[in-house]
Simulated scan of single mutants.
Amino acid sequence: MEHGAAAAVDAAPVLVRVEGLAKRYGDTTIFEDVDFTLRQGEFVCIVGHSGCGKTTILNTLAGLERASDGHVIVDGREVVGPGLDRGVVFQGHALMPWLTVRQNIAFAVRSKWPDWPKTKVDEQVRKYVALVSLTPALDKKPSQLSGGMKQRVGIARAFAIEPRMLLLDEPFGALDALTRGTIQDELLKICAATRQTVFMITHDVDEALLLADRVMLMSNGPHARVAEIVVNTMPRSRQRATLHHDPQYYPMRNHLMDFLVERSHPLTPPRSIP
């Protein structure tokens, strides 16, 4: 079944195509010649040191920034601005503090489907609030929620508009380890249930190996590039508690750590996993 799930992703159509992407600020080239694809239902993490342009790449996919060169094609159309076909979750939850959980998510749902009746909007809200296990907090305001709960609301809001692609910019970076693990588990379950395509920035190698089908490794900036793309060969039903028991885990983890510590300089040639 696991091999079937992986094969299904491999056989899925390409949803996102990034070609020759580059970003310059004045005379400084942050990254250049960035090329990659994302298939429908695939979870891809991008890893690299600060300053290599990870967030700028994500913002370009979201349509929040324009690249200096190159193209981003989503579902056959070039990205020229933000759109409801792409949901974004940042490290800060960005909830409207004067609205309840229900109202925050309903606002996004109505933006996507303005003609829906109130009952259908509320049904959609309840569905995704339940998926992140927050039904008891449905009518609470952000000030009454913990940091982890706020992030779960942000994730539910992004999923509730049923985007073609979900963009996550270190959404768990400010959370404690226990809360972070809980939300990672929620995210895995939702992605499995919805077959969501996800592009996520993380600094956490273990998080990348838990969540991602592929891990993109960025060389250091300036002139950063995608130095290597590592395929996660562990089964898709990965769990935090048992991840380290998989014989493939430590070779891949060591490979990623070795890249970040020793080989992230742009001139260093890539090396295969032993």
Rank of each mutant, 00 (worst) to 15 (best):
E2L: 10
V9F: 05
V9E: 02
D10W: 05
A11Q: 13
A12N: 07
V16S: 12
R17S: 15
R17Q: 15
I30R: 07
V34A: 09
G41M: 08
V44F: 04
I46A: 01
V47K: 02
H49E: 07
G53P: 04
L61F: 13
A62M: 01
R66A: 13
A67K: 04
D75L: 08
R77K: 12
G83M: 13
L84K: 14
G92E: 15
A94T: 12
W98R: 06
I105F: 06
F107V: 03
S111R: 06
K112I: 00
T119A: 15
R126C: 14
R126I: 12
A130T: 08
L131H: 02
V132N: 05
K140N: 08
P142C: 08
M149N: 00
K150E: 11
A160Y: 06
E162H: 10
M165H: 06
D169C: 06
A174M: 00
T179K: 04
T179Q: 05
E186S: 01
L188H: 03
T194L: 15
Q196R: 13
T197W: 08
F199Y: 11
T202V: 13
V205E: 11
V215H: 11
S219R: 09
V226M: 15
E228T: 04
E228A: 02
E228C: 04
V230C: 07
P235V: 01
P235C: 04
Q239E: 14
H245T: 02
D246Y: 03
R253P: 02
M257D: 08
P269Q: 05
P270H: 07
